[in-house]
Design a protein around this nucleic acid. Structure first.
Lengths: 191, 191
DNA sequence: CGCATATGTCAACGTTCGTTGACTTATGGG
DNA sequence: CCCATAAGTCAACGAACGTTGACATATGCG
């Protein structure tokens, strides 16, 4: 039973407040440790409201982690720039300048939830693979998409979850320079 | 207050049984979802025994995730084989032929626990970085170690946690061939 | 203005968790 | 063989969780 109230203008503001608080706490603590009471407290409302708005904790999580990677059209970027473009784009996605920080929530949750892991697989299958399909021969598509996944998810895990110091210390330009060639090879290079 | 009983021979068998059950369940479900009751049930003993043996759930987790990566001496492998050697070694570690599967437990737990994330950082600082230090100039050491971390952790996450199909489908030889060059560049290549 | 309806509050529920203490049973050295 | 000591059992605890229903308040259309 998803969602209930969404009629007036004020309700949509509190609804947005709940979503924002949920995204923050899910991203910081993962699904289990982020409690409805904490989320409600951050949104300055009653825990019961969260249930009234989103039906359940799982329903809230589903809404809080729905998003769009806004991936670029690779046929529009010079072949030699594909790797750098992708690294830069994903850093932007995770840093929150594109979308919100909810991919980190999903990643955290995926560590202990098959549903969340499946959600990430769906995102890859529905967004990353189609993007690559435009510049990669079909036969190599699954393998190259998988390789891209290993490097992109590895960056996310070490930088935003494990917080490995040298990875955290790198800025956007460094990441593009260092990881770009890897991504380039995984997408269009010799394997 | 760590550990208590470890006197007789039979006690060490049940102690080992608890540890094994804990490693399995922590690896399968992560720290929060793996309950002491489930662990005790799998070990066929009383939940109270887990506390008597390991003091607390956190104590058990600390014991269940202590391990040695058994990293090779890189000065003993041909420079051109370093990347392939490392990829093969880490696959073995995760697959469980070396050590046990407890690195996956730690990785899962790190998604929602700063302590677990810190434990992984300690492992990298205490085992991976010293290994690389023997073949990498000190100035480049942190950066190269960080890059290695992104690719290694990315492989672990996509293959053993997210279970991205094409990554799961690759066998050891394929992984070595595909990821080896990346690792090679991160350790000794031009950046 | 009046009142139906949406929004928000409050207290409590049932469950599950980690943990504890008192108890019973098995073990092995003197 | 005895009995101190260890291993193992059992029931219960307090706390925290997601969720619920009854109730109070605010909103906005007629």
């Amino acid at each position: 039973m998803p969602d209930r109230p969404a009629k007036t203008a004020k309700s949509q503001r509190t609804r947005a407040a709940i979503l924002k608080a949920a995204q923050e706490l899910f991203a910081e603590q993962g699904y289990e440790r982020a409690t409805l009471r904490d989320i409600a407290a951050r949104a300055a409302i009653d825990p019961a409201m969260v249930i009234r708005y989103f039906g359940s904790k799982e329903g809230l999580f589903a809404r809080a982690t729905a998003f769009d990677l806004k991936l670029p059209d690779l046929t529009a970027v010079p072949t030699d720039d594909i790797g750098a473009t992708l690294v830069a784009h994903f850093v932007d996605v995770w840093e929150g300048s594109l979308s919100n920080g909810s991919l980190i929530s999903l990643l955290r949750a995926a560590a202990s939830s098959d549903d969340a892991a499946n959600a990430i697989r769906m995102i890859f299958g529905g967004q990353v693979v189609p993007m690559l399909a435009r510049v990669v021969p079909p036969m190599e598509l699954p393998m190259r998409a998988g390789l891209v996944a290993t490097q992109i998810m590895g960056l996310a895990v070490t930088r935003y979850i494990l917080k490995v110091p040298p990875v955290v210390a790198m800025d956007r330009a460094q990441l593009v320079k260092l990881l770009g060639p890897t991504m380039q090879r995984y997408v269009v290079g010799k394997l």
